[in-house]
Design a protein around this nucleic acid. Sequence first.
DNA 1: AGCCAGGCCCTCC
DNA 2: GGAGGGCCTGGC
Length: 291
Amino acid sequence: MLIPFTGPFDLITTLESGQAFRWRREEEWLTGVVFDNIIRTRRTAEGVEFECAPDDETAIAPLFRDYLRLDDDLEAICDRIRVDDRIGAALRRYPGLRVLRQEPWECLISFICSANNNVKRISVNVEDIADGFGRPLALRECRRSAFPSPAELAQVEEGELRELGLGFRAKYVAGAARIVAAGDLDLFALREADYDEALAALTTLPGVGDKVANCVLLMSLDKREAFPVDVWIDRALREWYPEHMVRVDGKPLTRAAMRPWAQAYFGEFAGYANQYLFQGRRLLGRRGDQS
DNA sequence: AGCCAGGCCCTCC
DNA sequence: GGAGGGCCTGGC
């Protein structure tokens, strides 16, 4: 089925930008698991082509379109965040890169798993959680698993998660699952809450600090002003905005201070700026200079 | 061998 | 509020 779309959108770059961890690529095709479906998709000149299972494509199409945020006016957003030539260079380098609108629950657990971890192993962790405790899915010869619901994951012991290789994150995942499953935190309700309230709610969860919370807020809870500061953003800002990264006493800004600075500097779509800065700096490598 | 990976949490100042 | 250290695991 085709989702018609002729605007700016780079499907491969977006799905491989480290926002989501379950997409796998073969040539121009990407296969992932969203909305309890295996989805196989590619970009064409006419739009986004996809097939899915087990649900009907007509049922999944609007959800998948929403997931890809095709209704966001990307050019207008980029115009808003292009406040200098430094962010401007990153915007030019990755045309069509979008921020996803993911499922909050999986997004939350994924980024709890991201703590002091690398993208490759995060992907393995998330896949192992699904294979271990989620429903099996099939699309043609492809076999994957749905991401387990809060109720399903809440029944899993920390020890079982450690056996999967989650390490110290196992305790956080198990703890967060129990809280969400118990109804003590309604993730979807946070889409209606304002940024500060949603941030405060998320950071009550174990394993969720400012960085993880901002990832979940940006990538699944509609808070486009969210600005997660990780090691890559830390490097990007210090290298590209050095004059703004020193306090009046001469000491460097802490990460806690970098976020509000960036939100004020880039404005209401700071999260989009974050994604372009992240992409730009991450692809330079650990010690790479800008070139 | 040692450091690093999309941090969080706890302790101490 | 801010600095420092520990933490599972795997790769280079």
